[in-house]
Design a protein around this nucleic acid. Structure first.
Lengths: 211, 211
DNA sequence: TTAGGAGTTGATTGATCGATCAATCCAAGA
DNA sequence: TCTTGGATTGATCGATCAATCAACTCCTAA
């Protein structure tokens, strides 16, 4: 039983996608050569190009795998043992923090890295990236909706969910660049303060005003 | 008088750096070949390698130029005509919005793009990126300090300034990926709401409290 | 038992990459 | 005027890139 390399009981195509997923996350798309993928997957170039017309099609397959993995690989592990929907959001952020910490602030969000690395991606790639962001945002949106009654009535829930993604991605970017968790933690702390204030009923100093 | 290509009255080295700055911003570092730079700068490879030992040294020079340009090229234009320090912060964000809008959401923040494209940058590159972030954050921090009395006393000003950068970078990333200003605008709107709440005195239901 | 095709092998292709270097140009100092 | 050295030229290098393809293996269905 070989454990090195991507699970060798899988088909070659699956091994290639899993290896590419890992390497694209580690080194980016452009800096990962087809030869790198073939070597680490233990496959030959003919096998790759039998399963995928081009390297870019392999990338699209990787992005599809990320999309399908959001629920079972990302959300579910982050949320087990956390009941409060808003705390689930922060548990999700904490999972990114763990990832940063475990890798010395080199790994972050592979989707975000790819999104900024590929400046003018072909439509299928750009759409696959957007679908990943949408899936993430929708998951957070679901948690916010579960806490709807704790938030101001006029809150734009979708926009707030996008904002959570924004804070995560921006924090990861800075933490990776500074090789320090400080920036990520600062972002989460400020976001928590914002949620605190959202959940605190407004001034009501006199009485009327504010709908 | 040639106007095409980077100002031809400059030295060859300066033309190379300016051309590289533009191309690295447009296509990223890895996707910009030395041949691209030479062609658009109207120079020969020998000239480049006479001025810069490697392509990476050219990148470091570009990052230095960005750093030196923060004040005169970014902040000063964004802030003219805006007096309120907090509004200056949002004017800065608006300048990024303009940039996104003018380019169909393809350009964003070149520093952020490079920061995520280069996964394991050599120390001088990583440090040059970090210096750029620091300069940006310090500028925002200065505006927040100018509005110190309007913010809660216990506010972590530096962390809040980093948070502004986080929101900008995260918003740019999503807007570029979705090819739509919506995500960026949503981020700015939520940030504005947060600043609103920061500037609104807390509940004061009874009376005491507040340090 | 055999025919056929999906899957695999690995050498090879042409293009492109960053970088090199001998030759040449040219302006400033002696 | 001659000398010197920084700046420039442009052909060229070896490495590496994504992609190709004829040959081969092996499973399956007839």
């Amino acid at each position: 039983m070989k454990t090195q390399r991507e699970n060798s009981r899988l088909t070659t195509a699956d091994r290639l996608v899993l290896t590419a997923m890992r390497l694209f996350g580690e080194k980016g798309y452009g800096s990962t050569s087809v030869a790198d993928i073939l070597r680490e997957a233990g496959a030959n170039s003919g096998s790759l190009y039998h399963a995928f017309p081009t390297k870019q099609d392999l990338l699209v397959a990787v992005l599809g795998l990320y999309r399908d993995g959001i629920e079972p690989m990302l959300l579910e592990p982050a949320w087990t043992g956390v009941d409060d929907p808003i705390e689930q959001i922060f548990a999700l952020l904490a999972s990114y923090r763990s990832r940063l910490e475990a890798t010395g602030c080199t790994y972050g969000c592979p989707i975000g890295s790819l999104a900024l690395e590929l400046h003018e991606p072909d439509p299928p790639v750009r759409e696959a990236l957007a679908v990943n962001f949408d899936g993430w945002v929708s998951a957070v949106e679901g948690r916010l909706l579960a806490a709807r009654d704790r938030l101001p009535a006029q809150t734009d829930i979708r926009a707030l969910a996008q904002f959570v993604l924004t804070v995560m991605e921006g924090g990861v970017m800075q933490s990776r660049t500074h090789r320090s968790l400080q920036a990520f933690d600062a972002g989460v702390t400020v976001l928590r303060d914002y949620f605190q204030r959202l959940q605190t009923p407004p001034p009501t100093p006199d009485s009327t005003e504010r709908s």
